[in-house]
Design a protein around this nucleic acid. Structure first.
Lengths: 194, 194
DNA sequence: CCTACCGATCGGTAGG
DNA sequence: CCTACCGATCGGTAGG
């Protein structure tokens, strides 16, 4: 692990913006160089390959999701409260780093092997964490007796779609988004009878 | 509207496979020609441009979603029943035409203007249909008094994520997926108390 | 970080 | 549907 310079961080920032706006494949090294106001060849003083940039962005994003969620799972809160906080933490990662989260969620498939497999394994680990939470919630009777895998997918999909419509200047704060989402997921859309 | 030949349908089929597997930008006309066992230049006897293929795929997919959902919305069923059937219909479109649905959901951004705007408008119309349903459900007291727009997003996001994990040879039928999804969305994940 | 350049590949066309 | 090709652009490198 070599330390990364300020300029390298600037390059990553430009890559995050362009990859999230146009997609990885549709972004050329010339696009990035232009945004950085340098010549295309000069970019390679700061990066090794274009794919390395993608890899750095998605692994950093994965790190953020794990770091936000792990301490909550390791705590001794009851499952429903863990779930509330995990949703809040995950949503906050998406809203705070919207660009890299979008790349993490949509551009990973352009990684080549062996990174592609490493990525998938890590993403599956994360899914496993959420699934463990759902599993416990069902065991303990806090969550309904339902298809564990399917419920996990519902939680992840509803959280991950947020990057598609979230705008920092929109009317809702990340906290509000997390609160409404947990509320709807836990209690359902149907009007409670009685 | 010129009628499309069997060969043109074959070309569209190959494009659906490659665009969904690798993405639009990462698929070259040479990739498509090779899959069709013809020379790259010969492809242009059947298509005008590569983007026309993308446009045909996403508009056909949009047509399918509207056609599946419209008659249900126009019926005189109660809102909750409409919602059940709309979810089932939408999920069935995704599972029956998984490749084109995936392209519709993820590759549309590579359209150029003015098609990009036309696409967005149509997608917003569809979202409006679902939102109208949610609106009515709240008015009539069948759905909980909640953020209408947010509930619409939750419904759409949970349905649309299915293409990410659905496999035709998996254990669940489209009907089962739709049933479980509606159940969880309407009643929530929390164990009903009392 | 620049100049100058590499071979490969891109979407697409002319003429048959 | 093929041969033969177009100019443009791709990711990346050598040498300074």
């Amino acid at each position: 692990m070599s330390e990364s310079t300020a300029k390298q961080q600037e390059v990553v920032g430009v890559a995050e913006r362009l990859f999230s706006e146009r997609g990885y494949e549709a972004t050329s090294v010339r696009d990035m160089a232009e945004a950085l106001d340098i010549k295309p060849g000069s970019l390679y003083a700061h990066i090794e390959t274009k794919e390395n940039l993608l890899w750095e962005i998605v692994t950093n994003a994965a790190d953020r999701f794990f770091a936000a969620v792990k301490p909550i799972l390791d705590s001794d809160l009851v499952t429903i409260e863990k779930l509330r906080r995990v949703v809040a933490a995950h949503v906050t990662v998406i809203t705070d780093s919207a660009r890299s989260a979008a790349i993490y969620l949509t551009e990973w498939r352009h990684l080549s092997e062996p990174r592609l497999s490493r990525f998938r394994a890590r993403r599956d680990d994360y899914e496993g964490l959420i699934r463990g939470l759902v599993h416990n919630g069902i065991q303990e009777g806090e969550l309904a007796d339902m298809d564990e895998k399917f419920a996990t997918m519902l939680i992840l999909s509803s959280m991950n779609w947020i990057h598609q419509w979230y705008r920092p200047d929109g009317p809702m704060t990340p906290q509000e988004i997390a609160r409404k989402l947990t509320e709807m997921l836990l209690n359902g859309l149907r009007r409670a009878t009685g």
